[in-house]
Write a protein that binds this DNA or RNA. Structure first.
Lengths: 274, 274
DNA sequence: CAAAATACGTAACATTCGATACAGCGCCCC
DNA sequence: GGGGCGCTGTATCGAATGTTACGTATTTTG
């Protein structure tokens, strides 16, 4: 059962030749606006020639381009009149993807429900007031999150370091850490002993620890000044770090806002360095 | 302050002659669709002649009819991109975090709305059938996503490589790539030239490219076999990669499911190695 | 009530658009 | 390695679109 043109496209996109597939992808990515423009504009956006666009709409079963556009407009009209229909969209019926998405969305709502604006603001402030250095580290699967956060923070403020590589390498960097510094740790099940040991030592040196973990709380929580507990359960063989990822992005945004004045200047300086 | 064309119209509708007023009312009645049709159709719908329509848009300050249509399309594009703004729900309490979370949730829903089970299944199948090697690479801020995906895929199947470090390093690895291989690229604004070059060369070697990008599509889309366009707009100084992150997790789950038999054995073997 | 100004539609024009024929190219299969 | 098939872009044609000029109708104003 195919109701919308978008479905029709994604249904047949597998059987299309390369050029027409590009047209399809361009249309889907910016649906349905690209289809409302002229053939020339459409073809330019997709990086193919006009005839390819026409062959594309012909393959979808339309007699000519205007007919195709009319269909898109009718669809759009129906959408605009009943905004409610958008939320209850047909793709949510069964399928393998929806459970995953639904669970992830739930995880985020739950995660943020237990997280007050105040907490986030406190953590952001701590990250923004740069009395000392900021270190970030993650576990086996969460190291990318640490990297992601470090990549952003390092742009708006100095002295941001991501600890990577072998354990011995970052263990030695403990010597540089003191009570003015902050350590951001990502650790979810199965909790890594090496990280726990590292956190404990850092804690003893007076380092303030901000912990991203799952709802069962890594043992590191004992040493942490701030704990962010994200939901991780999804219908998959793996746990999901998506909720923690969003919290990280939220914090990055908050820190950036707080450092607006200083950060903006720094970003300009960085620009000029390129 | 006049922001939308609809406002502009209702602002000046009082000063218009009868015919043009009818045009205005017809347009407002089912805004903005009538304005996207041809002058002839517009005039027929309003019950006036074509020149009247043209005088109408001229009075609104547009040089010609196409310019008027472009403006309408831009407006529509803005609306469609942020579904949140349309629902305009003040229900969710203010605070600094909610807008960020709401936007992120919207982005995910919107991203998956343009992504069918079929497409995801196709991509997962391609990643699961290991005829050749799998390479993953990301840009400045998206490299962590590539890492995250690589960390998981490498566990359930062999020959998964994350390309990191300097450009020269991964450029040299092109020599190992052939038409049996898959290259997963993450590239969002501002698109990195080095990645585009790399993708082009890989494409010429027959490598199948799976691209994670934003809704404006990286130029790499031209070479890609599969394109995943995620929404990235959030109320922050930075773009959000959260939607792409969730797609990545979804794919990881799907691939794992497909490789269940073979993958489970491999995971057991890995366990025993520790 | 008359004259002028404005508004509106018909019709012809120029431009742009969509459609098609054709040739080059790569690809796959034998 | 050669022949055939399918895909794609260039160039061209016809059609439809937006635009403008002009004459008629309508309203406004002195």
């Amino acid at each position: 059962m195919i109701s919308s043109i978008a479905e029709l496209i994604s249904d047949r996109i597998g059987t299309m030749p390369a050029g027409e597939r590009r047209a399809a992808q361009t249309l889907i990515a910016n649906y349905p606006l690209t289809g409302l423009k002229t053939v020339a504009e459409f073809s330019a956006a997709a990086g193919v020639s006009s005839p390819t666009i026409l062959r594309f709409v012909a393959r979808l079963g339309f007699q000519n381009y205007p007919e195709f556009q009319s269909a898109l407009q009718d669809e759009l009209a129906a959408q605009l009149q009943s905004p409610a229909s958008r939320t209850l969209n047909p793709s949510s019926a069964g399928g393998a993807v929806s459970p995953m998405l639904e669970a992830t969305l739930d995880n985020m709502r739950e995660t943020f429900r237990h997280l007050t604006d105040r907490q986030l603001a406190d953590i952001a402030t701590r990250l923004a007031e740069r009395r000392g250095k900021t270190f970030l580290i993650g576990g086996r699967f969460t190291d990318p999150l640490a990297r992601y956060m470090a990549a952003h923070l390092a742009i708006i403020q100095p002295d941001v370091y991501h600890l990577a590589g072998q354990e011995s390498i970052w263990r030695d960097r403990l010597i540089d850490m003191g009570k003015r510094d902050v350590l951001v740790i990502f650790d979810i099940r199965r909790y890594q002993e090496s990280l726990v040991r590292f956190a404990e030592k850092a804690h003893h040196r007076g380092v303030q620890i901000i912990l991203f973990t799952d709802q069962w709380l890594s043992p590191i929580a004992r040493f942490a000044r701030h704990v962010i507990a994200g939901r991780t359960a999804v219908p998959s063989a793996w746990d999901s770090s998506a909720a923690l990822f969003v919290v990280a992005e939220t914090l990055i945004a908050a820190v950036t806002r707080q450092l607006e004045a200083a950060g903006a200047k720094r970003m300009r300086d960085l620009e000029s360095l390129r």
